[in-house]
Structures are given as structure tokens and as C-alpha cells.
Nucleic acid binder design. Structure first.
Lengths: 105, 105
DNA sequence: CCCCCTTACTATCTTTTTTATAGTATCTAT
DNA sequence: ATAGATACTATAAAAAAGATAGTAAGGGGG
């Protein structure tokens, strides 16, 4: 008899899965400065494609890290804001910033 | 006239690129408890394949996060240990652990 | 009216990365 | 002789990521 699919996640794995990908870190970095629109994020996050940006924002929304607000103006206006959960990620980003500037060459 | 390939990396991006992937976080988690062998890591890191483990360890070695020591016994024995740079990553992992246990459900 | 402009995405196709799985080398022990 | 342990490689299949073009919904200019 075999255990099937028993996955015990540690807190670090949980955090990694909620975040999703490296793009999330960079989007978080931008949103710590305040609410931003899709286009602003696209310009601020070097090298991200619209698909990656959409996918990442959707993932972050599904995991309650950001909130998406749509204003049905023309042209359409969509704003992204951090939730408390997202804000709380700040300590991690801060430590990464410190480590990155110390060891990043 | 176009700028080509001018990439300005922020410290967070630097940190992310040095780390490489989510597997590195989980390997780091194990190595904070002390030196470990290939097989020990394979068993400790849920779901990693030998290829992923090898690739990740090679990447970490190339980025001076771990040191690889080979003892030419039979069977072969290979040990992985964190460098100072690797040890210093502890603060980040610690914050992720806190965040993960708070928000990870 | 006709055409272009903006914003925020989708759709599609290609390329890259990841994963699963089997196999290799080396020597010991039975 | 054959099985076992360790630390990987190799290869093919599957999944994810990236590049690029296109769409919808009006607004404004000529």
C-alpha cells in the first residue's frame, strides 16, 4: 500500500507557490510605491510581455495579493493595488534588496 | 538609433537571478541545518528530480552559494555546504517562513 | 464618414525549460 | 555471479514561457 499524493508543504513552499514566479517579485516592487495601471507596470517591469503580465496579475489576484479595479472609461482604465497580504510581503522584498546589493556584484 | 540590450538590474532582480529557481530556496532551507549529501537532499526536497537537483546545485556552485566537496570513496561521497553568501540568505528565508505561515492557509 | 489613436488585454505559434524515467560507472558485500 | 549503494547523465515527452500580432470600444481630427 502506497501513500498517494501526500504533499506536506512547508511555509517556504507555501510562500513560493502563492507568489508564483519571479515576475511577481518585480510587480510587487512596483506596487509598494502605490497603485499602478496595467500599462505603467508593463513599462516599469523590464522585459515582461503583456501575456506574462496578465497571467501574473491574475495569479496574484487569485491569491489575494492584489486587487483589480476597472473604470469603464474610454480608453479603459484598470488599476492594481496591493492587499494587506501583499503589503506584508514587503519585509521579504526588503531583505532581498539588501542581499542583492551586498552580493549582486 | 536604438539602445540595444541595455539591462539595468535592480538589487531584487540580481538576487533572483543569483538564486535561480524555487528549488534553490528549498535546497537552501536544507543546507541551513548543515552540510548534506546529494542523496540526502534528494530525499529532503519533496518532488525534485535528480536532474533538477544536479542543475540547481551546479547553478548554486557557479554563483558561490554552495561548495561541493568530493570524497573518492566507494560508493562515492559528495557533500554540499553553504558559503558565507549562502548563509547570508538566511534572513530572506526566515522572512518567507514567517510570511508563509501567516498567510499560507 | 473614414481612419488612426489609446488601453488592456487575447490568441497563436514558437522556443525554452522542466519533468519523468531509464541508464551508467565504480567498487563492496554476499 | 549478482545485487546494492551513490551520484549522477541521457533522452524524450510534457509543460511553461516568450514573441508577436490582433481585438474591442469608443474619441477626435480631417
Amino acid at each position: 500500500m502506497k501513500n498517494k499524493e501526500i504533499v506536506i508543504e512547508c511555509s517556504i513552499e507555501k510562500a513560493l507557490n502563492i507568489i508564483g514566479s519571479k515576475w511577481s517579485f518585480l510587480i510587487l516592487r512596483e506596487l509598494f510605491c502605490g497603485t499602478k495601471r496595467f500599462g505603467e507596470l508593463e513599462r516599469a517591469v523590464q522585459g515582461i510581455s503583456p501575456k506574462a503580465l496578465t497571467d501574473t496579475l491574475r495569479h496574484m489576484e487569485a491569491n489575494d495579493i492584489v486587487v483589480r479595479d476597472v473604470y469603464p472609461t474610454v480608453p479603459l482604465r484598470v488599476e492594481y493595488t496591493l492587499t494587506e497580504k501583499g503589503q506584508d510581503f514587503h519585509k521579504i522584498i526588503k531583505e532581498m534588496k539588501i542581499w542583492g546589493s551586498k552580493w549582486g556584484g
